[in-house]
Simulated assay, not measured.
Amino acid sequence: MEITLVQGDITEQRVDAVVNAANSSLLGGGGVDGAIHRRGGPEILAECRALRADRYAGGLPAGQAVATTAGRLPARWVIHTVGPVYAKSEDRSHLLTSCYAESLKVADSLAARVVAFPAVSAGVYGWPMDDAARIALATVRAAGTRVTEARFVLFGAEAYRVFSDVLARLDG
């Protein structure tokens, strides 16, 4: 699988699936989640509400992933995953690892070949960018998947730089 890095807006990516750093409610929020819901339109929210009414009445647990339509996004699907909130006092890296692994499993079930990922948990959830990048890139690289391109779409020059440095170390 090819791993690519792009600095930009994940809602503008022409890919099979966009991964959403969702909150457990699946009903939109801030950051990537809010941007995807705003640009994708009401179709995404309608499917998320249906998921909440059925399979995920208590919300989507951290580390899991589920797909909906992409609505008005230039993608076919949105894969929603809930990242863990960072805590110095508790190692939650297994949950962050699971976000990427489960998103790829969902992508495989959809026959998605090109998937755009944000830096899950590295925004308002406070995960240190260097560690978030290491977990994301190592997990995706090690995954047994039919996805042919994992595109990390990073909002801002600093996130792009950190992911580039971590990828170079992994390639090293």
Rank of each mutant, 00 (worst) to 15 (best):
L95V: 14
A67P: 08
G34Y: 12
G83R: 11
L51S: 06
A119N: 08
R113C: 10
V147L: 05
R55W: 05
A157I: 01
H37R: 07
W127F: 15
S25E: 15
E102N: 15
L27W: 07
L137Y: 10
G172Y: 01
D130W: 05
P128E: 06
K105N: 13
G172V: 10
P42K: 15
T148E: 14
R49M: 11
L95I: 12
V18C: 01
I135Y: 12
A62S: 14
V6M: 13
V115A: 06
A133Y: 06
L60W: 03
A35V: 09
V82F: 04
P74A: 04
A133F: 12
Q7P: 02
I44S: 09
A62Y: 00
V114P: 02
V166L: 07
D108L: 14
P61D: 07
G41D: 12
A142S: 15
R14F: 05
D91S: 09
A150I: 08
L26R: 01
A46C: 01
R55P: 00
L170Y: 07
A65N: 04
I44V: 07
Y86Q: 09
D33W: 04
A17I: 01
Y125N: 02
S103L: 10
V147Y: 00
L51G: 06
A107P: 00
R38E: 14
L154T: 03
T139Y: 11
R52F: 13
V162M: 01
I3F: 09
W77N: 04
N20Y: 02
T148V: 15
R141H: 07
T148H: 03
G41Q: 08
R38K: 15
I3W: 02
R151P: 10
A22I: 09
R49K: 15
V153A: 12
L110T: 06
G71P: 01
T68C: 00
A107L: 13
A65S: 06
S103W: 12
S98M: 09
Y56C: 02
M1E: 05
V147A: 06
L45N: 04
T4E: 14
L27D: 09
I135Q: 12
D108W: 10
A132S: 08
S164I: 04
G59E: 08
R14S: 13
F155Y: 15
G71T: 05
V66D: 02
V166C: 09
C48G: 08
A168V: 03
L26W: 04
L104Y: 08
V153P: 03
Y56G: 07
E102D: 04
R169D: 11
A143D: 06
E102I: 01
Y86P: 00
A136V: 11
R14L: 02
I36A: 09
T68K: 03
R161S: 13
P128G: 09
I10H: 07
D33K: 02
V162W: 05
V15G: 11
R72Y: 06
G83C: 13
I10V: 14
L95M: 12
I36Q: 08
V124A: 15
L73R: 10
E90D: 13
G40V: 11
P42F: 05
S103D: 11
T4C: 09
A22P: 02
A143E: 13
S109G: 15
T4V: 14
A46I: 03
G123P: 00
L26T: 00
A70W: 03
L104R: 10
R141M: 10
L170C: 09
A46W: 00
L154S: 09
S103N: 07
L96P: 00
A46M: 02
G58K: 13
A142E: 13
G144I: 03
G29A: 06
G172D: 14
A87P: 01
